[in-house]
Structure formats: structure tokens, C-alpha cells
């Protein structure tokens, strides 16, 4: 049965789009049919991160308003044939997203895909509420940093009150994805630890993505980090998170990029 998954955070810049693309590609790599939808109307970027920016013709708003068919707006990934993208509109504003329209598009997508990943915009306004509205599962992307944790707490509150599931008395499945984590700094007491964030937010952990140069490298290339460099630390961490989303039990480790001693000594400075 198809699952609608929202990738959300409240705060901007914590890695929602990176995570949507990476998890989408990881799930598709495992054989599932996946579509990733950009809900950031007016500031779309998922197309760029996934390397499809030159192939956008129609978008989510066109489909919501009936100006284009779903099949016309869906962009199939060039690397993985079972991965698709539904881009956001760059010219319209978020009010064009009607609840009924979004519900209808998601209903159609549920028939074609196993996973429908909704990449939420930052904030708690219409785009963000529409992205979470019909979700079955939520991945809350959080950085180990005070403002991100606070905003995640707020978003968890909204997931428990403003989603369709919550209004029907159901509980939405929520998972924490801790991104940009630096185990060495956490160990030195310079960064909130995994346990700190877990204790404060009290939702189960789906993965820890270590801070890594590979993430920027992948977005430069227009490729999800799980495809651009699957064996990199963030690549492996996202693959593990995707397996946990599918219900597998995967031991929780924080992968690290392999570095030679010389690389350790000089690598950071050069970056």
C-alpha cells in the first residue's frame, strides 16, 4: 500500500530537500516506485538538487488546477526509472494550493507509487501545512542546534493536531532525522548529542546523517547523495534510514568518511 511521507522541519536550511532527494533515491534504488513532490511553491529547488531543472514543463499547481495531467507533469529520473519528481511552480504563490486539489493529486499518485515523498517548505504556513496534511508518516529533519530543535518541536505539535490523521483521532507516525551531526564536536560538548535531541523531542530516531562535504558535492552535481556517492558517509546513512522507513531493523551507527592521516591533518583546511 502506498505511503505518503512528509519531510518537514519548520526551520529552513536544515536539509529537507537534500533528505527528500536522498531518501527518495534510496527507496527507489531498493526497487520501490517513488515520487518526490516539491511543495515549496515560488521557491522550488528539488528539481535542481535532483538534476532535472531543465526538464520542468508543468508543475504541481498546473495539476492541482487541472491545467495539466499528472502524467505530463511527472519527470522521470534519468538514473532510476522508478523515481519521479513532481516540481513546484516557480511563478505562482502558495495560495494556489487548494486542499481538495492536493488531496486529489495525492489520491491519484497513491495508485501509481509505493512512496509519495512530500518535500515541505520551511515555516508553518500554507505550503508546509499542505505538505503534511495528508501524510501517513513524517520525517522531522533536525540539526543539533537550538533553533532547529525548537522549530522541530513546534512542527511535531502541528503534526499531532493539524494533519488529517490527527483530526480523525489517528496518530501520525513520526521519525527524527538528525542531520549535519558532528560526533567529534558532540563528544567535546560543543554540540547537542543525539541523546539530548531525542530526549527533548521524544520521537523515535530514523537516522543520523553526519556533516559531510559529500552533501554539497552531490547538490553541485544535481544528484541525490545516495546516487552520487552511495558509499560516502551521508550516502550510507541515508540508505540505512530508508531501510528503517521500510520497517527493517538496522543497527544505528554514525558512518564516517574514510580519511587518511594526511587527509585528516590537511583535508579540512583545504575544503
Amino acid at each position: 500500500m502506498a505511503k505518503v511521507l512528509v519531510v518537514t522541519s519548520g526551520k529552513g536550511g536544515v536539509g529537507k530537500t537534500t533528505s527528500s532527494a536522498a531518501l527518495g533515491a534510496a527507496l527507489a534504488h531498493g526497487g520501490d516506485k517513488v515520487v518526490v513532490i516539491d511543495f515549496d511553491v515560488g521557491l522550488r529547488n528539488l528539481d535542481l538538487v535532483m538534476g532535472a531543472e531543465r526538464r520542468v514543463v508543468f508543475d504541481l499547481i498546473n495539476v492541482v488546477q487541472g491545467d495539466a495531467k499528472l502524467s505530463q507533469a511527472l519527470i522521470r529520473d534519468k538514473r532510476l526509472e522508478n523515481l519521479s519528481l513532481l516540481p513546484a511552480s516557480q511563478t505562482r504563490d502558495k495560495d494556489a494550493l487548494t486542499e481538495e486539489g492536493v488531496a486529489r493529486v495525492l489520491k491519484d499518485l497513491r495508485e501509481k507509487f509505493d512512496w509519495i515523498i512530500c518535500d515541505s517548505p520551511a515555516g508553518i504556513e500554507r505550503g508546509a501545512t499542505m505538505a503534511m496534511r495528508h501524510a501517513d508518516v513524517a520525517v522531522v529533519v533536525t540539526n543539533p542546534e537550538v533553533s532547529s530543535v525548537r522549530d522541530s518541536d513546534r512542527i511535531i505539535g502541528l503534526l499531532d493536531s493539524k494533519t488529517e490523521k490527527a483530526e480523525n483521532g489517528d496518530r501520525i507516525e513520526k521519525h527524527l532525522l538528525l542531520t549535519r551531526y558532528d560526533p567529534a564536536r558532540a563528544e567535546r560538548g560543543e554540540m547537542l548529542k543525539v541523546e539530548d535531541v531525542l530526549e527533548i523531542l521524544s520521537i523515535p530516531l530514523i537516522g543520523i546523517i553526519p556533516e559531510s562535504e559529500e552533501v554539497l558535492r552531490a547538490s553541485n552535481m544535481g544528484s541525490p547523495v545516495t546516487l552520487n556517492n552511495p558509499s560516502s558517509a551521508p550516502g550510507r546513512a541515508y540508505f540505512d534510514a530508508a531501510r528503517r522507513l521500510k520497517g527493517e531493523t538496522v543497527e544505528l551507527t554514525i558512518p564516517s568518511d574514510k580519511r587518511s592521516l594526511l587527509g585528516k591533518l590537511f583535508g579540512r583546511r583545504a575544503a
Binding site: E145, V146, R150, R154, R188, G189, E190, L192, D196, I200
Partner: peptide, 17 residues
């Protein structure tokens, strides 16, 4: 270390919010 300070500030703030 600053992380314990961050942790405590968050716990107090969020309990209130």
C-alpha cells in the same frame, strides 16, 4: 562546554511553549 547550556535552555523553553 556549551552543549549542556543549549540543552538546558531548550528544556525550559519547550516546557513553557
Amino acid at each position: 562546554t556549551s552543549a549542556p547550556v543549549a540543552r538546558e535552555r531548550l528544556q525550559i523553553l519547550l516546557a513553557h511553549e
